[in-house]
Computed example of a mutant assay.
Amino acid sequence: MQFNFYLSKCMTVNENGIAIINGNQKRNPQLDDVITTMGEASALAQNLKQVITSPMRFFQTDQKMYIKLEGKSCFGILKIGRKNLFHRDLNGVIKEIQPLCVLDFYVHESVQRKGIGKELFEEMLRLEILRPEKLAYDRPSGKLLGFLKKHYNLQSYIPQNNNYVIFTQYFYNQQTNVSQYQIAQQTNQQQQNPQLCNQQTEQKRVQPQQTPLKMEQLDKMMQQMSLDSKQQYQQYQKNKAQAPWATDQKQHQNMYQTTTGLMSAQIQKK
Rank of each mutant, 00 (worst) to 15 (best):
Q2N: 04
S8Q: 14
K9H: 09
C10P: 00
V13N: 06
N16W: 12
K26C: 08
P29M: 05
P29K: 14
Q30R: 11
D32W: 03
D33L: 09
M38E: 03
G39A: 11
Q50P: 07
V51N: 06
S54F: 00
M56S: 15
M56K: 14
F58D: 00
F58A: 01
Q60M: 02
Q63D: 14
M65T: 02
L69F: 00
L69R: 02
G71S: 01
G71H: 08
K72D: 10
C74V: 11
C74L: 00
C74K: 06
I77H: 07
R82D: 02
R82Y: 01
R88F: 07
N91H: 14
G92W: 10
G92Y: 03
V93L: 11
V93S: 14
I97D: 05
P99N: 05
D104P: 01
F105Y: 10
Y106C: 05
V107D: 00
V107C: 02
V107N: 00
V107S: 04
H108P: 08
S110V: 09
Q112E: 03
R113T: 05
K114D: 06
G117F: 03
G117K: 00
E122V: 09
R126Q: 15
P140L: 09
S141E: 06
G146W: 02
K149L: 12
N153E: 14
Q155W: 12
I158Q: 08
N161P: 09
V165W: 10
I166V: 03
I166G: 02
F167N: 03
F167Y: 05
Y170A: 03
Q174F: 15
Q175Y: 07
Q175T: 07
Y181G: 08
I183A: 11
I183C: 03
Q185C: 08
N188A: 14
Q190Y: 07
Q203G: 09
T211P: 07
E216W: 13
L218I: 04
L218R: 12
K220S: 11
K220I: 13
Q224M: 11
Q224T: 03
Q224G: 03
M225E: 15
S226G: 00
S226A: 10
L227D: 13
Q231V: 14
Q235M: 10
Y236I: 06
K238P: 08
N239D: 10
K240L: 10
K240C: 04
A243H: 11
W245R: 11
W245Q: 14
D248Q: 02
Q249Y: 12
K250G: 06
K250Y: 03
Q253S: 04
T258A: 13
T258K: 10
M263S: 05
S264C: 14
A265G: 02
I267M: 09
K269E: 14
K270P: 11
